[in-house]
């Protein structure tokens, strides 16, 4: 046994703060988890489940007038683009919220609950770096989840229903190559709007040692925002609610894309996401880690 020589900053010979817990390492750490694997598998299977539901359900009358939802469901079998949009419509309101909250809410709180957070910090992985890498990996998984859902839906929809044009709920069609771009833009927009949930879950993840608390808290606040959005008495105040523009992507479904609401949605989502994430960094780099 020999004593290694130290660096000027006091670190061990092979140690460099910039090489600790790389993106790749953290990505692997998360990927080995059953939770991650199941989530991605579930999202990949969802389009198949929807397809079976369409096949078994047949062409039943869509009851009532649920506005956009019924219209989208009616058009779900029109082609790959419409099928994908339907898959995104049904999953964006709750499933993807939970998925995003899970990837971002579990990332730090999960380590705390295992007790491994203190050992990572004693490596030492600088706190800012730990948080940056964790956030980057969590967001990468969020994007991956959305990509898997979109990609599989397009694939399944394309094979079964063909690559026809995108049919809009209120009439009009978008031709095929353009339609795929529109669908991808919708997926991108949904990913951006869910940054609110991602940021909030990440903040809660830093504040609590219970992963369920972080995930549940983020989902809960998202639901509260949705409820407030339904209270018309709030008037213009609702314009800055984080969930105000979650369905603005419907604007991409008309022959002439409508982006005004999406611009608002992106601004609101990014501002909330940035505020929540900044608060997480501010807190984590100052807190006493007692987990």
């Amino acid at each position: 046994m020999t004593v290694t020589t130290a660096r000027a900053d006091g670190g061990a010979a092979g140690y460099s703060p910039g090489r600790t817990l790389t993106f790749g390492t953290e990505f692997r750490r998360q990927l080995t988890r059953r939770r991650t694997q199941w989530t991605l598998a579930l999202l990949a299977l969802l389009p198949v489940v929807l397809l079976l539901a369409f096949k078994i359900g047949g062409d039943g009358e869509s009851g009532g007038n649920d506005g956009s939802f019924a219209a989208m469901a009616d058009l779900g079998t029109a082609g790959a683009a419409n099928f994908t949009l339907f898959a995104m419509l049904v999953s964006s309101t709750f499933l993807m919220v939970v998925v995003f909250a899970m990837f971002c809410g579990d990332t730090v709180a999960g380590e705390a609950s295992w007790g491994s957070l203190r050992y990572l910090l004693a490596v030492p992985v600088p706190r800012g770096r730990l948080l940056s890498v964790k956030l980057a990996v969590a967001l990468a998984y969020c994007v991956l989840a959305m990509t898997v859902l979109t990609g599989m839906s397009l694939l399944v929809g394309g094979i079964v229903y063909g690559w026809g044009p995108l049919r809009a709920p209120l009439g009009g069609e978008v031709a095929s190559p353009e339609a795929i771009w529109r669908v991808l833009a919708v997926a991108g927009y949904l990913t951006v709007t869910l940054m609110v949930v991602a940021g909030l879950a990440f903040l809660l993840s830093v504040l609590t040692d219970a992963p369920l608390g972080a995930v549940g808290g983020a989902v809960l606040l998202y639901i509260v925002s949705n409820i407030l959005d339904a209270v018309t008495a709030l008037g213009d105040l609702r314009d800055v609610l984080p969930t105000r523009y979650t369905t603005a992507w419907l604007g991409l479904l008309s022959p002439e894309a409508q982006t005004d609401d999406m611009v608002r949605g992106i601004v609101v989502a990014l501002v909330y996401g940035a505020v929540f994430a900044s608060a997480a960094f501010w807190r984590f780099t100052r807190k006493d880690v007692t987990s």
Partner: peptide
Amino acid sequence: TPGAPVLSRL
């Protein structure tokens, strides 16, 4: 201090 490089020798 939190994240001091010397912790790598511990």
